[in-house]
Structure formats: structure tokens, C-alpha cells
Design a protein around this nucleic acid. Structure first.
Lengths: 355, 355
DNA sequence: TTGAAAGCGCTAACAC
DNA sequence: GTGTTAGCGCTTTCAA
């Protein structure tokens, strides 16, 4: 083994990256001219710019974001704050936003705020300050203090899946989505329709969308004159396992409903697992419908109300870029994207004891 | 509508964030003392530090990462480079790494390099330079030029799922994982075992793990004296749809094998969807086994070889932190994590025409 | 159209 | 222990 892994033709060590001065020297101009040329300022002669660009290429120069950020006050970075980094919905929203932001030259700084405590700490210390130019928050249950801290940042802000007064927002109509799911079951003749909804811990998981979807379920039941039958089982944990357990709870009851609607697909998928293991026929004995159109919905043949996920991320990103362009804080819009029912094999006519 | 959304009690506008000088003034010390106190330098009297910390809290001061980065040469940011942002494996690796890095005070900058072109552009412009302190690359097929550019960065580097000579690496034994899957089928009496593997485009998807898993399959078949039957079908696209289509291709052949092993679970899950739609019994007519233990594997009852995913991310992150601590470039280790067979309901004894 | 000079907000080397 | 003095590598007035 060679104790010194460096080649002996020294000078190769730490090939200090070229600075703006190196480029300036090579192009025979001043640093300011380099700066302006490279950022496409109008007031630079084509010839000069040409020389500068070539010099920069020659030295593989690109400006230090740190330095230019410090000098200009812009970071060219967007912060995205998510409650779950691994869940299908969030992952896809981030992916959608990422593409748009990256295209526009922005880097993405990801913050994962999985617990209410993490959120409290985060908004207290506000690591976003001076690190990003704008913020996208996903579906986070925010307290008064959180939103105040966010506003104090005084930078473009867009929320996704949750509304904040006066803040740009992208979402679907969660109530309508939920109603659509229930209506589908009603049309098939179901009356005993129970909802499996997400964790019911306001501080930790108080997602606005969750409240809305629960409300949508109740509305649909009510408008069908089935208020008395409306019944919501809350999952104990987020995701698949939560749905699986909730279905177990439902099965322990004396009477099984004929249909279940879930707040989101992962709950439905978990429920389907429990049903399969218990050999309960779907949709023969029980129909199941979700909301999302999760990638795996097609695999388990789940009927669901599809929402555009990557697109929501993309739209949110564009809203942010728009706000970043304006100097005046033009009215931040609210964009509501459409959902649509996707009928698959997990729903059918209700089970009856004596057909 | 109020045309001026600002409160009239002016002065609230843009409450310039406190700088280190403000804190220094309030605490009655110099800027350097503030800097040292806040970063826990040893040579500061407890009393002074106390005063500084309080002053900082009072003004909700926290250092600008831009400025401190520029001055110190460290960014307190780690770059993670992934080929897919939405795929289960990558998402979970990122999540595992994120927790560890975040805990250690590092921010995470995410780069998505979905196509070979994107990779070429990325490594040419190297936006990582001066933006991060260390880099974690996930399973990327890297060309000579890419790795050179990466090395020229001269910062700690760890790869996950792919080995790079002289670079720290975290992975599983992909060949062994694949062999385990095949052995499981062999033990059940299968001989007609076909592999469904990922896209076979070296430039775009030439993942090392893919090559290794294919090799493992061949080895296992060979050591069972079944070389002649070894047969690999490559998917056309990455993920579920790829597996679904590949299974379709397989079904169009005159003879269906009795078992299929896939390179990773999403392919297996896609294959299962195709099989269900074609009403081909699993495992009655065909057994299916994957590699990963994807979250959904339990839902579709898929037998698979489990690998620890978040843990791989966490281990990689720790390797990075270690390298960041050392001043000498101590030998970057290679960590190989164990896999284990998880038997579920998608595998069974081979189908025979005349039982 | 270009250059000189003054920072951006911090940290680090050197004094004391 | 603590303060002083230089920068880190850019952008941005302000002049020319």
C-alpha cells in the first residue's frame, strides 16, 4: 500500500476552484464585468460577454452560491417542508415540485417534520431564515405560532393541501373527493358504509385534508338520509398498518358493514390486507373504496378517487416562482385541482344474507 | 378588499433579522466572542457564554449559514444524489440518511438525476462544488468522467448500492440475495425458473445491483445444474409497469415457467398484477419471488428477500459524518448489510400438468 | 459599456 | 479569555 495516495506530480493537490478573479484576469476584464456577463445583464457588449463566457468555460468556473447569496441576498434555494418523507403522496408532490424548481435553477432543501415536537423546534429555530428564498409547506398541521414564524420570514410561501389565510395554496376539494367515493357506494345500493380515517391526534396529525374528508363522508351520508349510520373508525398509526388495524377493529364488531370508504388509499390497502387474511370476500362481502389513486391501487384492484399528485407539486412550485418574480406581493391564488372516480374491482353491489 | 395588506402600525415591515453585531452589542462583547460562544468553543468563560446565549435568544438570532459558510468554508449541508425520487428504495434510503444527518446538524440538498443526460449535465456543471460538505450517491451508474468529477470535488463521498474503488460504500450482497431467492424456489422443486430483471440500458440504468442480481440468478441456476434453463427477461421500464409488461411477454411464450424471480419487488408486484388479470393462479400455476421486502409485499403476499433500506441510508450517513470529522482521509470502509428470506404466499411447489 | 470600491455576515489568525 | 483585523467570493452602487 502506498502511504501517500497523492500522485507525485504535486500541484495536483486541491486544485483550488477558479474564482471570479481568475476568470476576470483571463478575459482581461474586471470582476464586475464577469459577474454581469455570466448572469446575462443587458448592458454588456456581445464581444465582452463572449470572451468572459469562454474564459469561464475554460476554467470550469461557476459562481459560489454562498458568496453570491451573501452579496445578493438570494439563495436560489427553495425549502420544502414535509410531515412524512417516505409516504407516497408527499414523495410525489416533492418530485413534481422538484422538477419545476430545478428547471428554474433552484435547489431544493428538504425538511422533514415528522412529529409535533419536531415542528415546534423547527419553527422556533427557523433554520429556513437566510437559507432559502421561498417555502413550500405540505399539509402540515400548523399552530398559530408556526404560521406566525413562517410569516415573519417575509418570503414567498405556498401551502399544499392546507389553506392558510392570505397564503397561496394548491389542493383538491377534499370534501368533494370523499363525497364522490361515498356516492359511488350509494349508487351501488350500499347503506351500511363506515369510514376508516387517519390518526385522530390533532396536534400530531391534524391535517386539514383529514378533517375535510371526514366532513365529506358525513355530508354524503346525511344527504342520503343515512346520518344515523354514519360511523368513523380512526386508525392508530399513519399508513398501511393503520388501515390494517382499523379494519381489524371493524371486524371485531358484531356487525360488519357492507362497505368501507377510507380517507386515503394506503388505509384502504391496509384494510384489504386484513380482509384477505381473514378470507373476507371483496367486494362480495365488503366493498372498499379509497381516495388518492396510489400507485399500488391498480395492483390490489382498488376503486378510488384519483387526485393529481405530482401536478399539485408542480403547480405549487410555479406559484412560488411567480411570487419570486414579482416585487409587489400580488394576491396569492388558490388553485383547486380536479379529482375523478376510478372504478376498479373492490366495489360492487352490497352483500345480502338472503339474495 | 384592502389594497394594502400591511398593518398600519408601520415599522413592522421587514423586521431585519438580528446580526452577530446586534447580539454582540446586547451582550457587551465582540463579534468573535459571540461566534465562539454560540459554537461552543472551549475557551469562553461560562459567564460570558451565558450572557451571549441569552442575548441571542432575546433577538432570536441564528447565524447566517451563507456567511458562516463563506467564512469557514463549510456549508453544513450534505448533497444526496438519486436516480429516482419517487421509488420506494430511494425514498427510504434518503429518509434513513436524513434522520442521521439532521440529528448531526446537517441540511440535506437533494439532487434528482433521472436520465443519463441529466447526469452528464450535472457532473459537468457540478453544482455540488461549494454547496455541500460531503456527497452521498445512490446506486447511480457513473461513467469514468462522473467519478472523476466527483473525486475532483475533494470532499467525503459515500456510495450506496454501488462500489467505487477507494470510496466508502454501503450495500447488501446483491448476488447472494438473488441466489437466496432462487434457492428458495429450487428447494420447493422448481426447475423452470425465469428471471424478470430491470431495464437493460447500460447508459441509463446500468445499476451495479442489477448486474449483480442477474449474476446471482445465473450462479444459482448453474450450481443446480440448470444452466440451460437460465433465462432473463428484461423489463422495458423501471418499476411496477415494467414488471407487468415483462410478465405479459413471458405469458405470450408457448411455455410458462413454474416460477419467476424478479430483480426487485416492484417488478414482482407488477407481474402479480398481470397474473391476477389473466387469472393465473399464484402460486398454484406460477410462483413469484422478489428482492427488497417493499412495503407492499405484505399486501400482495409476496415472498421476497428482505434488505434493510432505511438502515443502509443511516449507515451511509454515519460513514459520511465520520469522514467529515477526520482530517486525514482514513480508509473509507465498505459495509455490507445482511438480507433475509421472507416466505409469504406467492411461492409454493411447482405446478405439474398431471399431479 | 465598464471599473473601483464598498460591503453582505460571518470566522479565523493573531494579538493582548 | 477576549478583542482586532482580515478576509471568504461574490454583487452592487456609484463614477467614469
Amino acid at each position: 500500500m502506498n502511504p501517500s495516495p497523492e500522485p507525485l506530480h504535486a500541484a495536483t493537490r486541491r486544485p483550488r476552484r477558479a474564482s471570479i478573479l481568475d476568470v476576470a484576469a483571463l478575459a482581461g476584464v474586471s470582476a464586475s464585468t464577469v459577474s454581469r456577463s455570466l448572469r446575462g445583464h443587458a448592458s454588456i457588449s456581445a464581444a465582452t460577454r463572449q470572451r468572459v463566457v469562454e474564459a469561464a468555460r475554460e476554467l470550469s468556473y461557476s459562481a459560489s452560491p454562498q458568496a453570491s447569496g451573501l452579496a445578493s441576498g438570494r439563495t436560489h434555494t427553495i425549502g420544502i417542508v414535509v410531515p412524512f418523507v417516505t409516504r407516497w403522496f408527499f414523495v410525489n408532490v416533492v418530485a413534481g415540485a422538484y422538477e419545476v424548481l430545478h428547471e428554474a435553477g433552484y435547489d431544493v432543501l428538504l425538511y422533514h417534520l415528522g412529529t409535533a415536537d419536531a415542528r415546534d423546534r423547527f419553527f422556533e429555530r427557523m433554520p429556513l431564515a437566510r437559507r432559502v428564498d421561498a417555502v413550500l409547506t405540505l399539509t402540515l398541521p400548523l399552530t398559530e405560532e408556526h404560521t406566525l414564524a413562517l410569516r415573519a420570514l417575509d418570503m414567498p410561501l405556498v401551502t399544499l393541501g392546507a389553506t392558510l389565510p392570505g397564503v397561496g395554496c394548491v389542493r383538491i376539494d377534499d370534501r368533494a373527493a370523499s363525497r364522490t367515493a361515498v356516492h359511488h357506494l350509494l349508487h351501488q345500493g350500499h347503506e351500511d358504509i363506515v369510514m376508516i380515517a387517519g390518526v385522530e391526534d390533532e396536534r400530531e396529525f391534524g391535517f386539514a385534508s383529514s378533517r375535510q374528508r371526514r366532513a365529506g363522508y358525513r355530508e354524503a351520508m346525511e344527504s342520503a338520509g343515512l346520518d344515523a349510520k354514519a360511523d368513523i373508525v380512526s386508525a392508530e398509526t399513519y399508513g398501511l398498518e393503520g388501515g390494517a388495524e382499523a379494519m381489524g377493529v371493524l371486524m371485531d364488531r358484531p356487525m360488519l358493514p357492507t362497505a368501507v370508504v377510507t380517507e386515503y388509499d394506503e388505509l384502504a390497502i391496509g384494510a384489504l390486507r386484513t380482509l384477505r387474511r381473514a378470507s373476507i370476500a371483496v367486494p362480495g362481502r365488503l366493498s372498499v373504496v379509497g381516495v388518492d389513486d396510489h400507485e399500488m391501487a391498480s395492483v390490489v384492484d382498488l376503486t378510488t378517487v384519483a387526485q393529481p399528485v405530482q401536478e399539485q407539486g408542480a403547480v405549487a412550485a410555479r406559484l412560488l416562482l411567480e411570487a419570486l418574480g414579482d416585487t409587489d406581493g400580488s394576491a396569492p391564488g388558490e388553485v383547486v385541482l380536479p379529482t375523478r372516480l376510478v372504478v376498479r374491482g373492490s366495489t360492487g353491489t352490497p352483500f345480502t344474507r338472503t339474495p
